[in-house]
Design a protein around this nucleic acid. Structure first.
Lengths: 340, 340
DNA sequence: CTGTTAGCGCATTCAG
DNA sequence: CTGAATGCGCTAACAG
């Protein structure tokens, strides 16, 4: 392990001089010494020890990113956006995946605090649990007091800068668009009961239906992933089996659930959109080539991740909340309802 | 920013004692002092400074992961596997995305070296460029000399521990399976000319065809992603437009390209598998619900990522190379060829 | 069991 | 412009 001191000795200069040339300091160094140092560094294959630099400088070049699940394309897209701005600023990204365990989320914030990362970005829905939220908030407060920046993507529940997707509004717009197609009875594959993002989407959707004077949707809960969508759609199909007038349209609160629902319907011989229309939420890029193409609400995920990191990195007095609105995209998975 | 010294003073003990209780050292500490220290640490909200610990200990608790693109589900799955073992060992993961720029890959290795990460994992195909490969190798050698572990997922070109997917063998198996379905003329959406993974898959596929006495496949190059698959499939369709006997089966060298190909065929009214069969490679989980379901070669991506990190973390004298074989999975996107 | 002390590798005053 | 000295926060011998 070769150090700055080795380089300095090898170049016949002082430690300070070596430091000055190898780290883009403000101070200037004479051309000849500079050359010697650079040569020595190259010959020895010197690599600065970032930990030592961080200690001496009191600030590192790492940011932390906490996501629920990297395999979920939703988080992958957010992470990608954040990593692009990190890259642009010469920062490294330390990633933690909670696998949807709120305890792990808290633990990661503590760990990232210990790493003295410059900023931490929390991506993903909060869950409706006051105790957990408080603990996470305390952990974040401790981190911010020590000078770190924090931003969230999801809900503004932590008193931090936040990028909040228009879940309720987007779902409401979607409901209106679907009603515009002639649908009157709906089902919602509503995700987990405690997940705020899911709750908001359900509420927005149901609220718009109510405003339109349409009946409340049939709610089926389940996991927030593909298998959850499959299971919920299966349960839905079972439940309405004997009905004379079942829902003509199913809204899955996110795209991956919608994919599961599509698979479930296919397995049971239910045709989409002929027998039932299906819509999702997010507009995941990887899923755009699905057949039938999914109607959904588009969210600029990459931009949201990028924006959130910018907020976390650029300090501000007050906690800023930026709302991002989704755009309804109607494709082949939904179609005009047959007139009654 | 409160330090260990603050805690020690607050608890009325020495720095060493505070250190001993707060970091699970081997040494034992009396119950009363221990309690005092823990109380003080809690009251003050003490967080160890990992950079300082790393400096003093000479070893950190972070590992580096370099991938081409996190949004590509192939890399997301590899990363997920690696992150799971990291989590199990109490390590944090620093991620760098190269966006397929080999220069960035080299730069990331240098940066991770500076971070003194315990191990680095390079995921993704090498490219066929001797100069670039040599430079990367030098960078890695420097890192390993300083005690870091390195592992790759892809090809064994860097003299490191490597998990190598059976690209050629898998593609050959696939070719035989497809020939077994009666296909005799093939096209291959071959990816970029310089990408070793793509080359290996093409070579394995073509080799098996040759062994079977079948004509060499029509090769169409393009990007290694969804759009590349779309473009290549479009070009393919244009090229064979006037032929009296075109290929009845198209092999896209990875699943995301196959998705693009499916979309391209759909847009041109070409039916899969009626008009042409399509197969991919990887068996990306997110894509399993496609219609028609994609025939492909399944690779245990998550396990591969996990295994690679284990190799990087557990030192060995010689560079180990572990071959992972893929399994052909025939689904609906390929079907029996009509007898000539 | 507990306290003292000397670095870990580097940035940075402060003199020269 | 350059070198010597100090300390960042913590661990690990080393003495009591």
């Amino acid at each position: 392990m070769i150090t700055l001191e080795d380089v300095a000795r090898h170049a016949g200069v002082s430690l300070a001089t070596a430091s000055r040339v190898l780290n883009g300091s403000t101070r200037q160094v004479g051309a000849s010494l500079r050359a010697k140092v650079e040569l020595a560094a190259a010959q020895l294959g010197y690599r600065p020890n970032v930990a030592a630099q961080a200690l001496a400088r009191g600030a590192g070049n790492v940011i932390g990113l906490v996501v629920h699940d990297l395999v979920d394309p939703y988080f992958a897209a957010l992470a990608d956006g954040a990593m692009r701005v990190a890259e642009g600023r010469g920062l490294m990204v330390m990633v933690g995946t909670t696998h949807r365990d709120p305890e792990r989320e808290i633990a990661y914030v503590a760990t990232l605090n210990a790493q003295r990362v410059r900023a931490v970005l929390l991506a993903g829905s909060r869950i409706a649990d006051a105790h957990l939220t408080r603990r996470l908030r305390e952990e974040l407060d401790g981190y911010r007091e020590s000078g770190g920046g924090v931003a969230c993507v999801g809900q503004d529940l932590l008193g931090t800068d936040t990028v909040v997707p228009g879940n309720a509004e987007g779902a409401a717009d979607l409901a209106r668009a679907l009603a515009g197609l002639g649908h009157r009875r709906f089902a919602v594959l509503a995700g987990p009961a405690g997940l705020v993002t899911a709750q908001d989407r359900v509420a927005g959707f149901a609220g718009a239906l109510a405003e339109l004077g349409l009946p409340a949707p049939l709610l089926v809960h389940g996991a927030f992933d593909r298998d959850g969508g499959y299971a919920a759609a299966t349960e839905f199909a079972d439940r309405i089996a004997g009905w004379d007038e079942g829902p003509s349209c199913v809204f899955a609160v996110n795209d991956v659930m919608a994919v599961g629902a599509l698979a479930a319907f296919r397995d049971r011989g239910i045709l989409v959109p002929q027998d039932v229309s299906v819509a999702g939420f997010d507009d995941i890029a990887t899923l755009r080539d699905l057949v039938p193409a999914l109607s959904t609400v588009r969210l600029p995920l990459t931009a949201m991740g990028a924006r959130a990191l910018e907020l976390a990195l650029d300090p501000a007095g007050e906690a800023r909340v930026e709302r991002i609105s989704g755009e309804v995209v109607l494709r082949e998975s939904t179609r005009k309802a047959a007139p009654a």
